[in-house]
Simulated assay, not measured.
Amino acid sequence: MRGTALRHQLAELRGADVPPRPLDARALAALAANPGCRRRALLDGAGVDKAKLADALGSPSGFGQSQFALTRGNAFEAKVKADGGTELLRLVRERLGGGPEPVPGEARTPDLTAAGPEGRTARTALALREAAADAGAWTFLEHPMLALDVAGTPAFLEPDAVVVHPDGTWTVVEIKSFPMIDGSADAAKVGAAARQAAVYVLALERVAAHLDPPPRIGHRIVLVCPKDFSNLPAASAVDVRKQVSVTRRQLDRLTRIEDIANALPEGTCFDVTHPAEELTEAVEAVPATYAPECLAACELAFHCRDRARAAGAVTSLGRGLRAELGGLTTVDGVLAAAHGQAGDPRDPAVAALRRAAELRAEALDFQKGVAPVCR
Rank of each mutant, 00 (worst) to 15 (best):
A261N: 12
A54C: 11
A296W: 03
F68S: 14
L204C: 08
A16T: 14
K81T: 11
P159L: 08
G218E: 09
T71G: 13
C298L: 08
K176V: 06
R241G: 12
R253T: 13
M145I: 10
R305G: 01
R360N: 07
H303N: 04
A115D: 14
R2S: 10
G73F: 13
F302V: 05
E299F: 04
R95P: 01
G320I: 08
V272D: 05
G326T: 07
A56R: 11
P213Y: 13
I260Y: 07
W138K: 05
G98F: 01
V222N: 03
I181R: 11
G64E: 11
L295I: 01
L141T: 06
T86D: 12
R253M: 13
E205A: 10
E358I: 00
G191K: 08
L295M: 13
P372H: 07
E106F: 05
D365R: 15
C37Q: 05
A338D: 03
G85S: 02
P233M: 12
A203D: 05
A187N: 07
D49Y: 09
R216T: 10
G218Y: 00
T109I: 01
V164Q: 03
H165S: 09
R206T: 15
G15P: 04
R95Q: 14
F63P: 03
V18L: 13
F366W: 14
R90M: 06
H210K: 11
S177E: 13
T268I: 13
L325K: 01
R26Y: 00
A69Y: 15
L232N: 10
K79M: 15
E293T: 10
N34M: 07
P154K: 14
T71A: 15
R195Q: 13
A29S: 15
V173A: 06
H219F: 02
D44R: 05
L295W: 01
D55P: 02
D55H: 13
G312Q: 09
R307D: 07
I221Q: 09
S61K: 06
G320T: 14
A288R: 00
A288Y: 00
E277I: 06
M180K: 04
A27K: 06
A29Y: 04
N231T: 15
R307K: 14
R90W: 07
L359D: 10
E158M: 09
L325G: 04
G58D: 13
E77F: 06
V370G: 05
R216I: 04
L317Y: 03
V164W: 01
A25K: 04
R95E: 12
G369Y: 14
G136T: 04
A16W: 13
T4N: 11
N34R: 13
Q341M: 10
T171V: 15
D111I: 03
R95T: 02
A151K: 07
A69N: 14
A282C: 08
A194E: 08
E358H: 07
A151E: 05
R14N: 12
V224G: 02
L88M: 12
A187L: 15
T124I: 14
A193Y: 02
V190Y: 04
H219P: 10
G116L: 09
A54H: 08
E258L: 11
F68D: 12
V190A: 11
A29N: 06
L70Y: 09
V207P: 00
K81R: 15
L10W: 08
G36N: 07
